[in-house]
């Protein structure tokens, strides 16, 4: 009766998909763990922004590559998981708004960067937990 139910041990991944893990990059993911002062406040604001499709902060997803602060001028380097990301303008606008709202920030320059390319390796441990909780296998 149960003979049609596949045994877990027989499960094979889709033959047409290459399940690459991607390369990890020494300085990434950047999380602002060592940031102080205004930079720390900017990282906090960035942590508050969620990916539009999954319940994970964009920082834990590994989209933020760096934050630098020069007086009130903030520069954020950010990437996207996919070059054709339909939420690009929505996300960049949200980042600009959230950072601008931080007390002490006068100006923000958001730079979209594409190298190193984002891979799953950029997701933080906490981010991986969030994604697992959401039902993704990672």
């Amino acid at each position: 009766m149960s003979s049609n139910i596949p045994d877990d041990t027989d499960a094979t991944p889709c033959a047409y998909t290459d399940y690459r893990e991607g390369e990890s990059t020494a300085d990434l993911p950047a999380t602002g763990a060592d940031a102080t002062g205004l930079a720390a406040d900017v990282w906090d604001a960035l942590y508050g922004i969620e990916d539009p499709e999954m319940p994970i902060s964009i920082v834990d997803l590994g989209l933020i590559y760096g934050v630098s602060v020069d007086d009130g001028d903030v520069t954020v380097d950010m990437t996207l998981t996919y070059s054709g990301c339909p939420a690009r303008d929505m996300l960049t606008a949200e980042v600009e708004a959230a950072v601008t709202a931080v007390d002490g920030v006068e100006d923000i320059e958001l730079r979209l960067v594409w190298s190193p390319e984002w891979t799953v390796e950029m997701v933080t441990e906490r981010g991986k937990d969030d994604l697992r909780e959401f039902g993704l296998s990672i």
Binding site: S83, G84, W114, S115, W118
Partner: peptide, 17 residues
């Protein structure tokens, strides 16, 4: 230009396949 190539190539591989 150089910085964009890696991202684009990783997405292009599937097209040829």
């Amino acid at each position: 230009i150089a910085d964009r190539v890696g991202k684009i190539r990783s997405e292009e591989e599937y097209h040829l396949e």
